[in-house]
Write a protein that binds this DNA or RNA. Structure first.
Lengths: 205, 205
DNA sequence: TAGATTGTTAATCGATTAACAATC
DNA sequence: TAGATTGTTAATCGATTAACAATC
């Protein structure tokens, strides 16, 4: 195990490896190599070996990596060997889609509360959830110790909602609002903005 | 103007600048500096100047950048000074949310068709759209010259649908399915997978 | 003119690749 | 043993930062 600081760019690739390995495991494959994994995820074998070796010696010369073992290790490293409670703020179309999304299960997350500031939405049911008043964010999240939130509110209110989440102890925000958030550097943000992602490809067309 | 190859990493930042500048323009601001823009997007002033200067001299010493002018230039560079037709494949919850998403307008995109392979969904209406049979992808997209698609199908069918899209002439795919796609290198893919994005943050918690 | 800010160069820093000894 | 593949080192490549002359 290595105590040095691991670059963000490596941490960013681990979930991709994890996803590919999970898929191989689901297909009954027991073992893989950096070569094979690299072909699946579109990354060089050398880089995969280098990335993984930051955290220990998880492979065997001659045979590669045990998928089950590497999965365990990656989950441990990424701290998704547990289930994180996630708050969702914004009960619009995107919020609904996330509330119903099946893809959080088995990947370390579960939504525990949905908030909206629109009083006409408060009390509405989304599957088994009841939309709560956004004003209750501080009390609800602090007491529950929720550290992760997903933000699906309009751009105009995203910053103020983010501020409130951070005040409530949230340290990781998955932001669907099309705006850059200003946060202290002990808070992580990931951005999902379909238009921005599309605009990253049109240059090449 | 510079004819050298521009690194992907720079192209990836331009939509973020574009989004921030658009926001400033909406707020009636006429001029900005690399310093100010950098504070908005969390990137150093030096890097912003370097990125922008790859494409020309768009600023003025002493006063910075005209926001309207820089917006024009960035839209031109990214080729979003036009409206791209986009196909959506997968009429589940996420597909519905994207179909109704207002954030494509004014950012260079419009959805022109929605497909699903589930025959019970074919013919259903989503707002003004009618879900079409996925088998019609080749004929519909080729004749319309659609180059961009968004993929919101299950992981199990994502690769085969991607193959079909590519055969139909699609060159850019925004993939919401939680799987790495194998595509020829003249086809671009961007990935949106909420669990993967969340897993990029838990390491730091 | 004085102050501000660009565009660009050179220096630094960091990431990727290639190569191979070690070893399963 | 022979073949395969890791983990790691050194070399290469690329990106970021600092600094400043140019100039609005």
């Amino acid at each position: 195990m290595n105590a040095e600081k691991i670059p963000d760019i490596i941490i960013g690739r681990l979930p991709v490896y994890l996803r590919a390995l999970q898929r191989m495991a689901d297909n009954g494959i027991k073992t893989t190599s950096s070569q094979e994994l690299g072909e699946h995820v579109g990354i060089s074998a050398a880089q995969i070996r280098k990335d993984i070796s930051q955290f220990g010696e998880f492979g065997k010369q001659g045979t590669g990596y045990s998928i089950a073992y590497l999965l365990d290790k990656l989950r441990e490293i990424l701290k998704v060997d547990r289930i994180w409670d996630v708050a969702l703020v914004g009960a619009g179309d995107m919020g609904h889609a996330l509330a119903r999304y099946q893809g959080f299960t088995n990947r370390g997350f579960r939504i525990v509360a949905i908030f909206d500031s629109d009083k006409t939405k408060v009390g509405q049911k989304i599957d088994e959830f009841v939309v709560e008043d956004a004003e209750k964010i501080p009390e609800r999240l602090k007491s529950a110790g929720v550290k992760i939130a997903m933000l699906t509110v309009p751009a105009t209110s995203a910053q103020s909602v983010a501020d409130k989440l951070i005040q409530a102890g949230v340290k990781a925000i998955l932001n669907y609002a099309p705006i850059s958030l200003n946060v202290p550097n002990n808070v992580k943000v990931q951005y999902i903005d379909p238009s921005t992602h599309l605009q990253r490809m049109t240059y090449y067309l």
